[in-house]
Design a protein around this nucleic acid. Structure first.
Lengths: 145, 145
DNA sequence: CTGCATCCTCATGGATACTG
DNA sequence: CAGTATCCATGAGGATGCAG
């Protein structure tokens, strides 16, 4: 009933009553696109792999050694995913032993920029985030004291 | 431990025979920072919540209606996480019924920029990604007919 | 060297019911 | 209205073994 009168300041936002219809500021297709990319980039290893390949193509085990902690399975799966999305190319040299080179595609390279910006933000603000976490956790504990 | 791993890995690379590829290793603290932020931003709902709050503060159920598909549980959990990380502030008005307003903090607002850039990349390139996926999947299905 | 298959564990997240 | 608690399905991800 009282609803969001203060939200009217945004203008483009709702002026709802109890209709339940609220902000549609974000287009649905855009949201799913962002979510889609985020699902790829947000998993545990994709960004590491992309960043490792930013300096040039690498072979499977070079990549593996270059990304401490990744398992063989996960490296394979991550590379497949990136390849499927057109971000990484895979070049097989049918020799013995076989040689497979991975490299960023043009699309993959173009992804590096926004990801790097996010990375820079992370590096610049991780301190504040960790401080906030510590403060929050301390505040939670105080309820018990 | 990671340092030892890095040194061992670099040594291995140097003794690698025909690669001459210099693997530029990224600093461990930076990597974990990026990974850390990515874990927060990369989950299913955090970005949506942040983007919904980018236009101004919202109450719980406004947020809920503004983010189609999110469950009450997930909205609560996501907001707690964002609050803990200092990205979102929570203001309780002890009335009947209770009123809780969520808003981006300064830190949260600053995150909007890099995230928006990533979002723009997603919107601009989702077509290429989906095309690559279709092509990849088509190639996988081809069992020599 | 590259990479698939299998097994197993655990975190994520959805549905539902209940509380203040 | 805002939030918690519980149950449950799914899948991410690690360890290991095998194959081309």
């Amino acid at each position: 009933m009282e609803t969001a009168t203060r939200l009217a300041q945004e203008g483009t936002l709702l002026s709802d009553r109890d209709t339940g219809v609220t902000l549609e500021v974000h287009d649905a297709p855009q949201c799913s696109a962002v979510n889609d990319i985020l699902a790829r980039v947000g998993d545990k290893w994709s960004v590491r792999v992309v960043m490792a390949l930013a300096d040039g193509s690498l072979r499977f085990n070079q990549l593996r050694r270059g990304i401490p902690g990744i398992s063989q399975r996960m490296l394979t799966r991550t590379l497949r995913g990136l390849e499927r999305d057109g971000l990484v190319s895979r070049a097989v040299t049918p020799s013995v032993p076989p040689r497979v080179d991975y490299a960023l595609t043009r699309l993959g390279t173009s992804l590096c920029d926004p990801v790097a910006r996010l990375g820079n933000w992370a590096i610049a603000n991780i301190g504040q985030v960790e401080a906030a976490r510590a403060a929050f956790d301390a505040g939670q504990d105080q309820t018990k004291l």
